[in-house]
């Protein structure tokens, strides 16, 4: 397994069956319901609906991609939670 991304934000990807990813990141790009949304450190609190597509988590020179669909993305105090009905690392 390659080293996971790392960074100042905490990101969690949770599917109904398990926590798919829990770690740090510098940036997160996710497919929202109406287009991609990018999140960096210091983002305002936000809740948005997810669309279907590939989410990219970058940090510490590493990149990890996830296929996600149906759910939401929540940002609060550099804590990003992605809750998706389907979520799997690519």
């Amino acid at each position: 397994m390659s080293p996971a991304p790392d960074g100042p934000m905490r990101i969690r990807v949770i599917s109904p069956t398990r926590a798919v990813f829990d770690g740090g990141a510098e940036s997160v790009v996710a497919p929202a319901h109406d287009g991609e949304v990018g999140i960096l450190r210091g983002h305002a609190p936000m809740v948005t609906l997810l669309g279907e597509g590939v989410m990219t988590v970058r940090g510490g020179g590493e990149t990890q991609e996830f296929q996600v669909s149906r759910g939401f993305l929540q940002v609060l105090n550099d804590d990003v939670t992605v809750l998706a009905e389907q979520a799997a690392p690519l």
Partner: peptide, 23 residues
């Protein structure tokens, strides 16, 4: 807290409630 909601609260709720019931 003062969340940015995208789409509106009822839009999000409308999409999440079916997920909640299934879950």
């Amino acid at each position: 807290p003062y969340y940015i909601l995208d789409p509106s609260a009822d839009g999000i709720l409308g999409a999440l409630l079916p997920l909640y019931v299934t879950n």
